[in-house]
């Protein structure tokens, strides 16, 4: 009889070919120069190139702004969706989640067209609008998840101890839903840093984000520097997800 662990072989092969190998390739390219010699120049170039650094800083800034706006708009939305008295149907939740099923590129193109039609100047404002539009479901869903799973007796206990509904919200509901918020931030923040399509279409390439310069380098066949930038990006993602690991558990449940 075949050992049961062999059953995982197809998946192991798949993971090797499509996940591990590309990652190894990124690291290899990042640490080589054009002729294939080992070098750290690509990495040091990033830290000495003021253009790259300022793009990176701008990306982080946009990502922070995007995350904050997503929290401010997404939390109340999630709260309303999770509240039995305000929302009795699962359809409303679907309506909020549905945009995630449409290709982000298409939504972005459509948004850009809309702005053009209305005569808005493309720039940071439209960029942020597009970002929020694209990423807010990723903020709403984990928060909605933690809120619906939250034991109602906590809120009841607080009310029983003399807390008005407003105080119950701030002293119990919000602190207990932080894992959902953290998980939402994780799903909004890093993708924002690495996105390039939204900034390209919604600013006419006026504003470049970190993702944009990776894409530009790769497109112009500067594989090694592009790989180095992607590698730096990976390290940051790795660090943030490690940092977030503990909060993830209670907000897990994934995105449909």
């Amino acid at each position: 009889m075949i050992k049961r662990s062999y059953w995982s072989l197809p998946y192991v092969i798949f993971m090797m070919v499509f996940v591990v190998l590309p990652l190894v390739l990124i690291v290899m390219y990042a640490l080589q120069d054009g002729s294939g010699h080992f070098t750290l120049a690509n990495v040091t170039r990033f830290f000495t190139d003021s253009d790259s650094l300022s793009t990176f800083a701008l990306s982080i800034e946009v990502a922070i702004e995007n995350s904050l706006i997503c929290i401010l708009l997404g939390y109340p939305a999630a709260w309303i969706l999770a509240n039995r008295e305000l929302n009795r149907s699962a359809v409303t939740v679907m309506l909020f989640i549905m945009p995630m099923w449409i290709n982000a590129l298409m939504r972005t193109l459509a948004t850009a067209e809309l702005f053009n039609m209305l005569g808005f100047t493309l720039g940071k404002g439209t960029l942020l609008f597009g970002m929020v539009y694209d990423y807010i479901p990723f903020m709403i869903y984990p928060i909605y998840n933690t809120l619906t799973k939250m034991d109602k007796s906590y809120a009841e206990a607080a009310e029983d101890l003399g807390a008005t509904p407003w105080k119950v919200f701030w002293k119990v509901t919000v602190p207990l839903s932080m894992p959902g918020v953290m998980s939402g931030v994780l799903m909004v923040f890093m993708p924002t840093v690495s996105t390039f399509a939204i900034s390209e279409f919604l600013t006419n390439n006026k504003i470049k984000l970190f993702g944009t310069i990776i894409q530009e380098n790769i497109n112009s066949s500067m594989w090694n520097y592009g790989a180095a930038l992607a590698f730096i990006m990976l390290v940051i993602i790795g660090i943030t997800s490690l940092f977030n690991d503990s909060t993830q558990e209670s907000a897990e449940g994934g995105l449909i």
Binding site: D151, S153, Y154, E156, A157, E159, D160, L161, A163, T164
Partner: peptide, 27 residues
């Protein structure tokens, strides 16, 4: 409920997990 001078001990305790023992009691 928050205006009633009554307090409840819940079946599954419902202690606030984000607060320590002191802050739970002092709530």
């Amino acid at each position: 409920p928050y205006k009633r001078p009554l307090n409840t001990v819940f079946q599954r305790y419902a202690l606030f997990p984000h607060l320590d023992v002191f802050d739970n009691i002092a709530f």
